[in-house]
Computed example of a mutant assay.
Amino acid sequence: MEDRLSRVFAALADPIRRDMVARLASGDATVNELAEPYPVTVQAVSKHLKVLEEAGLVTRGKQAQRRPVHLEAEVFDLMTKWIERYRRQAEERYQRLDEVLLELGQPRTEGGAP
């Protein structure tokens, strides 16, 4: 899981790739459609898509002459689980801090933050 998660986060480290993922969230698109707003070549966009594809974030279909790129949303479940685990741990630490502050007679932290 970690290796796949590392590939996903590495793929999303690039702002163009993050934007492509955001655009694909509203529907499939071709490479040419994805390339339109960027000041890069279609070949560069294809390379970005290859990185996203290797990370499992997108797949390329085939519909007659059209090859739409499709966002694989279940990959976000993997990311969400990983993030949620660390969010819960941080929340537990803040709750313990609140308990210690109460014992010391200090006011509670707002929303878990000092």
Rank of each mutant, 00 (worst) to 15 (best):
E92W: 06
M79H: 09
S46A: 07
L101H: 04
P37R: 07
Q43W: 14
R18Y: 00
D14E: 10
D77P: 07
G61A: 08
E103I: 09
V51W: 04
R60S: 14
T30V: 03
L57H: 13
A73W: 13
E53F: 10
Q65S: 07
R108P: 13
Y38G: 05
P39G: 11
E84F: 08
R108A: 10
N32I: 04
E91D: 11
A22L: 02
E110W: 08
W82I: 11
G112H: 07
K81T: 13
K47N: 15
R93Y: 06
P114E: 00
A11E: 01
V100M: 08
A113I: 14
L34S: 00
D14K: 07
E54I: 06
E103N: 05
L97G: 09
R4F: 01
R66Y: 01
D14M: 02
E91A: 09
E53G: 11
E2P: 13
R17G: 05
L57T: 10
E33R: 00
Q89K: 14
E36K: 15
L97C: 12
V45G: 10
A22D: 00
Y38M: 04
S46L: 04
I83F: 02
D77W: 09
L102A: 10
L104K: 15
W82E: 08
G111H: 15
P68F: 02
Q65H: 13
F76K: 04
V21C: 02
S6Q: 13
Y94S: 11
L97R: 05
V100S: 03
E33G: 01
H70K: 05
G56S: 07
E99T: 03
M20W: 06
L97I: 12
L104A: 07
R4D: 06
F76Q: 06
Y38D: 10
E2L: 14
P107C: 01
E36F: 13
L78F: 04
D14P: 02
L78V: 08
A29R: 06
L57Q: 14
V42F: 09
A29Q: 01
R18N: 01
L52E: 15
K50Y: 14
R67F: 00
E99M: 04
K50G: 09
E54S: 12
L57I: 05
M20F: 05
Q65M: 08
Y94P: 11
V69E: 02
A13S: 08
K47G: 14
L12G: 03
M1K: 03
M79W: 14
A73M: 08
L97K: 02
D98I: 03
K47I: 06
W82L: 11
A13R: 09
M79T: 13
Q95H: 08
R87H: 06
R60V: 15
A13G: 13
E103H: 01
M79N: 06
Y94I: 00
M20V: 03
K81G: 14
A11G: 09
G111W: 15
A113T: 13
M1C: 09
P107Q: 00
R4E: 01
A44H: 07
M20D: 06
R93C: 04
T109W: 02
R60A: 15
